[in-house]
């Protein structure tokens, strides 16, 4: 009843070259910068997890989704939060069901019951175990890793280092195909050195204006091109102001959608004034931007 795979971890690569990453991600609607394409390619080739850090809304989670789409892999997502533990991240035994099974098995020998109770049927796999046991190509996304406690990092070390999980009743389960792993972090906390060392590191920042314009146009295709350029220009300027939360790509896209929904095709002062809340989420930021950009 031991399901221990002894084959070496699969080395099937997903991409041929950096350019291949570029075109395939572009095809699924994610426009990567050179940095993104290169690191995704390397993460795939070297079989290392990719740690993506950067401000909120620059497309960290989206990258995982895009890689999954581009390669036809299944996306397994582990959302981290304060207080997440092994039972939520790795696996859990279904205690209630085990108890039922034991009570129902009157007259059976203990050995038979024991083997049965710790079988597949009673295991509740959580994202990490699911990703490792999958036989199809998989993208494992560990989202907002910095929100999780330090103990969970220890757990991730075993999983990400060797792509194996130890279930005491079964032995060690090794991935038959190494999942493409992507960790995201907003850098609210320094992740431990040990975890970082096992990963390739990508700092995802706001894209340059040209790329951002193309991203907005890809996401909001009905938007007139001139308007997209105008949006990107203004957002770029807003990022230069000292704000509590600089607007991200997702805010630019939202802004484009808002303008489209309102049926506006030019950005005059009134439009900016009334829709600035879409881009700047803090009242203080909006006030400050209005004052600095002489909108009042």
């Amino acid at each position: 009843m031991r399901r221990v795979s002894t084959e070496p971890v699969g080395q099937k690569t997903l991409f041929d070259s950096v350019d291949d990453v570029m075109t395939r991600l572009t095809d699924v609607g994610y426009l990567p910068s050179t940095a993104v394409a290169t690191t995704v390619f390397l993460a795939d080739r070297l079989g290392k997890p990719l740690l993506v850090e950067g401000p909120a809304g620059v497309g960290k989670t989206e990258l995982a989704r895009a890689v999954a789409d581009a390669t036809g892999s299944g996306l397994v997502r582990l959302q981290c939060y304060e207080g997440i533990d092994e039972a939520r991240a790795l696996y859990e035994w279904n205690h209630a069901k085990q108890l039922l099974r034991i009570t129902a098995s009157q007259g059976e020998s203990w050995d038979a019951t024991r083997d049965d109770v710790f079988s597949e049927e009673f295991l509740l796999p959580r994202p990490l175990l699911t990703a490792i046991r999958r036989t199809d190509p998989t993208v494992l996304l560990v989202d907002e890793t910095d929100k999780a406690d330090v103990e969970v990092e220890g757990l991730l070390l075993e999983v990400l280092g060797d792509f194996q999980v130890t279930v005491p009743e079964w032995g060690t389960i090794t991935a038959n195909q190494r999942p493409f792993t992507l960790l995201t972090s907003n850098a609210t906390r320094e992740l431990s050195e040990a975890l970082k060392r096992r990963c390739l590191f990508l700092h995802l920042d706001f894209p340059d204006p040209e790329l951002e314009r193309r991203i907005v146009l890809t996401r909001v295709p009905q938007l007139p091109e001139a308007l997209a350029e105008e949006l990107v220009r203004i957002v770029g300027v807003l990022r230069g102001i000292q704000l509590r939360k600089a607007p991200s790509v997702s805010e630019t896209i939202d802004w484009g959608r808002t303008l489209l929904a309102l049926g506006l095709d030019t950005l005059d002062d009134d439009t900016v004034r009334s829709t600035l809340g879409v881009v700047l989420k803090h009242q203080a930021d909006a006030q400050r931007a209005m004052a600095e950009l002489r909108l009042n």
């Binding site: 070259s17 690191t39 070297l46």
Partner: peptide
Amino acid sequence: DAAAVVAELDLLQREQLREGLAAAMLRRS
């Protein structure tokens, strides 16, 4: 890791080499 990166990348693509080495060697932004 950096050496592995160099082996995988096209050395004539300088920007790719830069990003690749950064990914392998840096740990914070």
